[in-house]
């Protein structure tokens, strides 16, 4: 239909899909970084961290292109600002992933064997959360199935609650262990870096809900 021809909006939607794909790849590399680090394979961990860094740089480029296209007239002005805010939040997911990798390789936290699986689980559980968010956002910009998007946002909330629960229990077990206070504090910070990614995904999904609301009359 001629009325709905491709324009700047379609271009922005395409770039948002690319951005989401890159953010998800960034998290996959972060997961590999943590996996290799916990196995003691520092070379592989560095390699994955470097990939994370490169992908994060690409997400920055895509974000700038989206913002540029937005303010060249894509979408109505009142919606433009909401999309801009949303994109900044999406980019923060990749930023947090990069910071997490930097923490592991820069500060080399010593994680006792009994806690390794639980640290790995935190980042493993973040991946399906990211995938759900990616699908929901793609659906919003390309199809607009509001019911499905709402279900996905609810699902993201459930994922986040599970990760929060794991974080709370892991924190408790760390602080009741025989580790020194310095080690406990260091591992707590490490855990916070890992959970910051899922926190950011949930925060961004809240913004997706805002977009859903503002598109309604």
């Amino acid at each position: 239909m001629g009325l709905f021809k491709k324009g700047k909006e379609q271009e922005v939607a395409g770039m948002i899909v690319d951005l989401l794909e890159k953010v998800h790849q960034c998290l996959e590399e972060t997961q590999k970084t943590v996996f290799h680090y916990l196995r003691g394979d520092l070379e592989e961990a560095k390699s994955s961290a470097l990939k994370t860094d490169h992908i994060e740089t690409e997400t920055d480029h895509i974000r700038r292109r989206i913002v540029d296209t937005l303010y060249r007239g894509a979408f109505l002005p009142i919606f433009r600002v909401d999309i801009h805010n949303f994109i900044e939040k999406v980019d923060l997911i990749a930023d947090n992933a990069e910071i997490c990798c930097d923490f592991f390789l820069g500060q080399r936290p010593e994680i006792p064997d009994e806690f390794k699986k639980r640290f790995q689980k935190v980042i493993d559980d973040t991946l399906p959360m990211s995938l759900t968010f990616k699908e929901a956002t793609e659906n919003f910009f390309l199809k607009g199935n509001h019911d499905l998007i709402k279900k996905s946002i609810t699902q993201i909330g459930i994922f986040e609650s599970a990760i929060d629960d794991d974080e709370w229990k892991l924190t408790r077990d760390l602080f009741t262990s025989d580790l020194s206070l310095a080690e406990k504090m260091h591992l707590k910070r490490c855990l916070e870096k890992l959970t910051s990614i899922s926190d950011q995904i949930e925060d961004t999904s809240d913004w997706l809900e805002v977009l859903l609301i503002v598109t309604k009359v």
């Binding site: 709905f4 909006e9 979408f75 109505l76 910009f141 199809k143 607009g144 598109t215 009359v217």
Partner: peptide, 16 residues
Amino acid sequence: TDRFLKNPIMRDTFIR
């Protein structure tokens, strides 16, 4: 509009 134009791009184009 809410019933038939759920896709933000179509909605935006319609309003323009």
